[in-house]
Design a binder for these strands. Structure first.
Lengths: 225, 225
DNA sequence: ATATTTCGTTGATATAAATCAATAAACAAA
DNA sequence: TTTGTTTATTGATTTATATCAACGAAATAT
């Protein structure tokens, strides 16, 4: 059993991309013993804003959307997470956002207390974790940059490029871009209506900026511009 | 001289609001010896994206705008900083943004190497610093929330509220709100044109949502809603 | 396979913001 | 103070997006 658990982390598909990469054999064993793999269907809420933080989640497979509720109770998506990303930490007490599966997803769940022990005694993991936070900040600023673009067409194109780079970071090719999330989530992320997003896709096709295999498989024609 | 320097930090108006609060007498003395106070005119660029990081700046007085340049070379303001805020750290090598004075400003400048020494040996300062980073992330997400609001009027009102809370955090009253930055900077921050911002102010006045003393001194009439 | 539901596209129209242009108010300098 | 310069407001018009509505395609369930 313990042997199986150890091999779980040793064979982890995302270990090289995540804080776990700086754990030595002994600590990795401790992680293995405490980590649980869970599979979720799509549209399942993993954690909610206001709930007490008790676990940190690493994404092994699938896509997660992260959102907040604004004062009118409307959902505002602040990001899409991919394998190699993690979520659920920061701050002391409570989660500050909702995390929901977009597709079926496989997650690695670690008790926050265990995680914090490693965080306090391992400078490497602390650096990685801090790096992840500043990376989140960069992504938020990229989001801001997209939101201030003047046309819906430009916003949508920037979004596709962003996802393209994201999947490239995971070792997949730049093209085709797989837009797993529904149009309405893209619209929400971009501060647009789904009809506007749909029309932007149509214009980008007419422009030859993109080509569509299916509505969820897109080819960016001019990688630059 | 040394005595004067020590008293500089001891009498610092923002010490309680910043990482320096967790320095003991000895380390505060070291900070004092290395910190330089500098006064800048308005519209002066303090640091530029791409430059090598060599200092971290604490704001003692005045307002700083932080911006990035997007791929078209246009300025995109990502935040306004107030006394008690600091900027210039994060990441290893280079600044990732521009910082420019909006008003006349007084800054406390600390060599980054000195700062990092304290950061590595003092867990308290590390925690404070991490907290500041997550706080930046919250502000970025607040910005995203404002940018996705549907009307210019709502965006401008949210902006005024945000500044109101910001100045409240500094110990000033909620009203009146002092909008030190010009309309064009507000417009840029909100992804709008300055004429649109101006018209939004006019509508908010007509609504009785706000009242204007001058164009830079605003009273929020219904603190809630 | 067929029915049902969800999701995406397209059309017509209304509405909000951008743009172009002029004026007015505030600020700085002589 | 007066002049010049910058910044803000208002107006007229164009343009882009939201909204309302219908249809079509894809996915899911029966």
């Amino acid at each position: 059993m313990d042997k199986y658990q150890a091999s779980k982390c040793l064979h982890c598909p995302i270990r090289s991309k995540i804080y776990c990469s700086c754990l030595d054999v002994e600590n990795l064993k401790d992680f293995s013993d405490n980590a649980k793999h869970e599979t979720f269907d799509k549209k399942v809420i993993i954690l909610s804003s206001g709930n007490e933080i008790n676990s940190i989640y690493n994404i092994l497979d699938g896509i997660i959307k992260v959102y907040q509720l604004n004062e009118d109770g409307n959902q505002q998506i602040i990001g899409f997470l991919y394998p190699g990303d993690f979520f659920g930490s920061h701050e002391g007490g409570q989660y500050q956002f909702f995390a929901e599966t977009v597709s079926q997803a496989k997650l690695c769940k670690i008790p926050i207390k265990k995680f914090r022990i490693h965080l306090s005694k391992n400078a490497g993991i602390r650096d990685k974790f801090y790096e992840a936070t500043t990376n989140e900040l960069s992504l938020a600023r990229e989001h801001i940059n997209i939101l201030t673009k003047n046309s819906a067409e430009q916003k949508v194109l920037d979004f596709i490029r962003m996802i393209s780079l994201r999947q490239h970071k995971m070792g997949q090719p730049i093209n085709p871009v797989h837009l797993i999330m529904p149009r309405i989530d893209i619209a929400n992320y971009l501060g647009l209506r789904l009809e506007t997003v749909s029309r932007a896709f149509t214009k980008l096709k007419a422009n030859n900026s993109i080509s569509l295999n299916n509505f969820d498989s897109i080819i960016i024609n001019n990688a630059i511009s």
